[in-house]
Amino acid sequence: MNMIVCVKQVIDPEAPPASFKIDSASNKVVPPPGVSPVISPFDEQSVEAALRIRDAQGGKITVISMGVNLLRDVVKKPLAMGADELILLEDDAFTEGDSWSTAYALAMAIKKIGDYDLIFCGRQAADWDAGQVGSGIAEILGLPSVTVAKKVETADGKAKVERVTADGYEVVEVSLPALITVSNELGEPRYPTMKGIMAAKKKEPAIWKPADIGVEPAQVGTAGRRTRIVKLFQPVREGKCEIISGETPEEAAVGLATKLREAKIL
């Protein structure tokens, strides 16, 4: 089973909301100082999904990450978890793409790898929360896709995927090669082992530039965008919470119930 996993480096989505800042003049997000970026959480789950398949039946896992200023400690985490190879699409031309230009570049990189049975993406990247790149790659490569998976198993040239729906899940069978997007219901990604971390340190990622995947710089990143950002802003929150206190927590609780009654909320 040859598997490819697309992982994105993002600003830590679990950083406190108060640390989130934007620069409205440039319509850009200002990374919070002192908070290290991370692999987008659903992408770690994608790596985990691939590792589980390799554990069960062997195979090879190639990880691709596209961006600029990719911190090696961050993007090597999938290697430390057990993935076999890492390819970085790292070039100024790949900066700040939209769903279209990102999917296009990743699809071209996957085409260059050529030999694959399964491609994994996260259900959505934890920065722009688009949830489009996986389906986009599948469409560009002409592959079937199953999105929002919580379990993936393969046998006889097919994958059996449990797809999360609003009120449960459905079991979908898909022919391979296929693209699957993964959700947190898959379960916790494994922690890197000491051995894995040491092995990852020694491994050098392959670096691919636009020319290596046969695209013009104008087709990818910002230049290749089809969508324009008119405005980026932070919604204002009212923030006037009335704290109901009391001598004891029980007293405060009674005060809260009484207050809600007075305010006709109850």
């Binding site: 929150r237 006037k240 919470c241 206190s245 927590p249 029980e250 405060a252 609780a253 809260l256 809600l260």
Partner: peptide, 19 residues
């Protein structure tokens, strides 16, 4: 608490039964 209209600061195990 930045989003709430009313709040109680306390251990839910004590607050919820009384509430």
């Amino acid at each position: 608490f930045k989003e709430a209209r009313y709040g109680v600061v306390g251990d839910w195990k004590k607050v919820v039964p009384a509430f």
